[in-house]
Simulated assay, not measured.
Amino acid sequence: MSDEDASGPVDFHCHLDLCQDMRAAYTRCESARCFTLAVTTTPKAFARNKSMARDSHFVRAALGIHPQLVAERASELSLFEELASSTRFIGEVGLDAGRRFYPSFERQKLVFESVLALCTRLGDKVISIHSVRTAKQVLDVVERTGAYRTCVPVLHWFNASESEIRRALELGCYFSVNEQMLQSPRGRILLDTVPIERVLTETDAPFQSDEFGGRYPGDVTGAIRLIADAYGEDHAVTSDRIRRTAKQLLTG
């Protein structure tokens, strides 16, 4: 059995470079055999993450331009475009219509549309997508650009209605979920609607509330418990199923 096949957690959306000790966070994921998608929030942050992940069996660094930073970092879109062909992994990208970030929403839409159009042209991208109060708008862009045809959209912390979840399934989306979101009614609706084969665990570390799991990358035990209970499975079986899905996406 290869290292990649060995048991271990899956953290399909976390910010290793924003942890207190970035190198220790990378080392921890590697030691835990944690299949990890280390998203970035700006294109300038990608080079260091890519270098850190270069010799890793389990961690993949993703190129991102976070919607919450578009107001200050939209000028980095040109750098994103230069770097996009160098990686299969894109994230964190998306839209955020929360009150604090709504003033930049029109610019966010332009950036996100450009990002997904580029990914569609390049093809074979795994894309971790942020969607605060923007489920419909995000899915509209996924569909309009054709990203669902040539890439794999993974919807991070997707708080949406059942109809929007079903639409996302029809577009081939996967869903990365964490313990905190699964405690909410929308999180339970998602698990009631999505087949286990489309579910991945995440922590969004270091940004989850201290009262839930996700205090460090790979801390998905609580999420696995909730997912397994929702599907009526043994916890170990659920963990193995999610790991197989992650391996398929990360090793392609």
Rank of each mutant, 00 (worst) to 15 (best):
D3R: 14
G8A: 05
P9W: 04
D11N: 06
L16N: 02
L18F: 11
M22Q: 15
A25Y: 07
A25F: 11
Y26C: 07
R28Y: 10
R33I: 07
A38K: 05
A38G: 05
V39L: 03
V39D: 04
T41P: 00
A47S: 06
A47W: 02
K50C: 05
S51P: 00
S51W: 06
S56L: 05
V59K: 12
R60L: 08
R60C: 10
A62K: 09
G64E: 03
G64W: 01
G64F: 01
V70N: 02
A71L: 02
E72C: 01
R73D: 01
A74T: 02
S75T: 11
L79D: 13
E81Q: 08
E82G: 09
A84R: 09
F89H: 01
V93T: 05
G98C: 01
R99W: 09
R100N: 01
F101T: 05
Y102T: 00
Y102G: 00
K109P: 00
K109T: 02
L118A: 00
L118F: 02
C119Q: 08
D124A: 12
K125I: 08
V126M: 07
I127M: 08
I129C: 14
I129K: 11
H130M: 07
S131R: 01
R133Y: 15
V138A: 11
V141C: 05
E143P: 01
A147K: 10
Y148S: 09
T150G: 04
P153V: 04
L155T: 08
L155C: 08
H156G: 03
A160R: 07
E164T: 03
R167D: 00
R167P: 00
F175H: 06
M181I: 12
L182G: 14
L190Q: 13
P195H: 11
E202W: 13
A205N: 11
F207T: 02
F207Y: 15
Q208T: 06
D219G: 12
D219F: 14
G222F: 15
A223K: 07
D229F: 04
D229R: 09
E233T: 11
E233W: 10
D234G: 03
D234E: 08
V237Q: 13
R241Y: 07
Q248E: 11
T251V: 12
